[in-house]
């Protein structure tokens, strides 16, 4: 095995490498800055905000191996059609168990006209191996990432 070389030429090589690295980073940062400024002047895409109108979280109870079901009534208060596409986040139990529910959402997708209301039904098959307890998650509307509607599912063996 040979010793690593030492000397002025190696120091020069290292300085050159550092300089190239510095310049590459400077170019990246400059581009990032310029594009960020450019992005600020781009036309805004008017969006939609989800505003919960009911104070309580959606709640359901089911036994392991059973099925939980919740309903969500949504109204479009915008002046043009908007998309309604409900999805569910993973549900997390109090003991840290994470349940990736295979929810059946109906309708999965809907175009809502101005002032139109729609009811979304979420059916969650509860796997038999889910530990009993309270699971919390969110019903989200796709594309509206400013939050969702809290959902609480209690898994308990029927007495």
């Amino acid at each position: 095995m040979t010793e690593p070389p030492h000397g002025a030429s190696d120091a020069l090589g290292e300085i050159l490498r550092l300089q190239q690295d510095f310049q590459a980073r400077m170019v990246d940062e400059t581009l990032r800055y310029l594009r960020r400024v450019q992005g600020m002047f781009e036309p805004h895409a008017p969006g939609t905000v989800l505003r919960p109108d009911a104070p309580a979280a959606l709640a359901a109870t089911a036994a392991p191996g059973g099925r939980a079901s919740v309903r969500l009534d949504v109204e479009n208060r915008q002046r043009v059609h908007t998309v309604l596409a409900a999805t569910l986040t993973p549900l997390v139990g109090e003991d840290g168990t994470t349940w990736f529910a295979d929810a059946d959402v109906r309708p999965a997708f809907r175009l809502l006209a101005p002032a139109e209301q729609a009811r979304v039904t979420l059916r969650l098959p509860v796997p038999a191996d889910v530990p009993e307890g309270l699971y919390r998650g969110l019903v989200m509307l796709r594309g509206l990432h400013q939050g969702g509607v809290p959902l609480e599912v209690t898994v308990a063996v029927a007495s």
Binding site: P46, G47, T48, V49, L50, R51, P52, D53, A54, L58, L72, D73, V74, E75, N76, R77, Q78, T82, L84, L112, Q117, L141, L144, V149
Partner: peptide
């Protein structure tokens, strides 16, 4: 029509 749980509104 009833009381909706969620309203879809414009951005503030």
């Amino acid at each position: 029509p009833g009381d909706p749980d969620v309203l879809l509104v414009d951005e503030p």
